[in-house]
């Protein structure tokens, strides 16, 4: 039993080292990939690998030097090998090659590498975010009494106003559905309820508000499809037809940690001022995000934001109470 153990000390040390290295280098990234479900592994940083290996070596050193017997067991095969007990040829090959391996390692460490500078990018910078926008409330999500009343009047007169971008398509629908109410192309429950109430002549504020929400959502979705879809994709997954052309890819709104971690005032600020409005820590020079306050009205931007959250199935963070 004892002699068997002695024989094995050297090899068990080597095998332990290999196994630990294998776990740190390959098994952890592999398992992390399975856990996160992401298409790429989370690699262990090289400094951390070094740290783990130094710890392992220290532990193994303590273990082998703990008793005279084990140290002997470790040293014996090494000494025998150098003496040539396992044959002179393997000994000479190892002794001959080893200096060059070291030389190669030194070369590898000291030779200049082509590693482009990487920048750490803060995705949600707040250094130049105007504080007053923190509590900004969407006028589309929270319509005024006047807005709701106007909408009810328009609906009663069967003359609901839509944004000009949609008029032509709705006209064409109206032509094929002449007897239908102008809101009839929206096949959702709140609109059905609202139209029924109009017919019966007892319109409730609640139903009108929900119907107005549906109408605004429809406009927002259309504006999203026209303006944002080329980059952010029609599923809001950051995979639009233009996405591959940008190194800093368009944001995937369906990811956790994007639009649900920010208040809607912040989203409005980002949409309005675009990439150029970012502070340096968010690398504005790499961002293709347009400055939308140049081309979209405030109302259009709010409608888009409403549709964007709806499409990604997320809700904005609620502003903290002061």
């Amino acid at each position: 039993m004892g002699s068997k153990f002695k024989q094995g000390t050297f090899w068990s040390t080597v095998i332990t080292l290999i196994i630990i290295y294998g776990i740190v280098k390959f098994a952890i990234p592999f398992i992390s990939r399975k856990i996160t479900g992401m298409p790429f592994p989370l690699p262990v940083p090289s400094t951390l690998i070094l740290f783990y290996m130094v710890l392992t070596i220290a532990a193994l050193f303590l273990y082998t030097t703990f008793s005279e017997e084990r140290l002997e067991g470790f040293k014996r095969p090494v000494i025998d090998f150098i003496k040539g007990s396992y044959g002179m040829l393997p000994r000479n090959i190892v002794l001959g090659v080893l200096p060059f391996v070291v030389g190669w390692q030194v070369y590898d460490v000291t030779s200049p590498k082509v590693i482009p500078p990487t920048s750490i990018r803060i995705q949600h910078p707040s250094s130049n975010f105007p504080k007053k926008m923190e509590d900004l409330k969407s006028p589309i999500e929270n319509p005024s009494q006047d807005a709701i009343n106007t909408f009810i009047e328009q609906a009663k007169a069967n003359a609901v106003e839509f944004i000009p971008q949609l008029k032509a398509d709705i006209e064409r629908w109206k032509k094929t559905n002449p007897d239908n109410h102008i809101l009839g192309f929206i096949p959702t429950e709140p609109i059905d309820k609202f139209l029924k109430e109009i017919k019966a002549g007892n319109v409730t504020m609640e139903a009108a508000k929900s119907a107005l929400h549906e109408k605004n959502l429809f406009e927002g979705r259309a504006l999203y499809a026209m303006n944002c879809r080329p980059c952010h994709g029609d599923s809001a997954a950051g995979d639009g037809p233009m996405a591959d052309g940008f190194k800093l890819r368009p944001i995937n709104f369906t990811d956790n940690g994007t639009i649900e971690t920010i208040v809607e005032g912040y989203t409005f600020w980002r949409v309005s001022t675009g990439g150029l409005g970012l502070p340096p820590e968010a690398t504005p020079w790499d961002s293709a995000m347009p400055v939308w306050n140049l081309n979209l009205t405030e109302e259009e931007r709010w409608k888009i934001i409403m549709a964007e959250y709806d499409l990604a199935q997320k809700t904005p963070r609620i502003p903290e109470k002061h």
Partner: peptide
């Protein structure tokens, strides 16, 4: 209505906004 109409049109004629 929610996912296709903005490109393919409300009446399916491929003329969405």
């Amino acid at each position: 209505f929610k996912r296709c109409s903005f490109c393919h049109g409300l009446i399916g004629d491929g003329n969405g906004p």
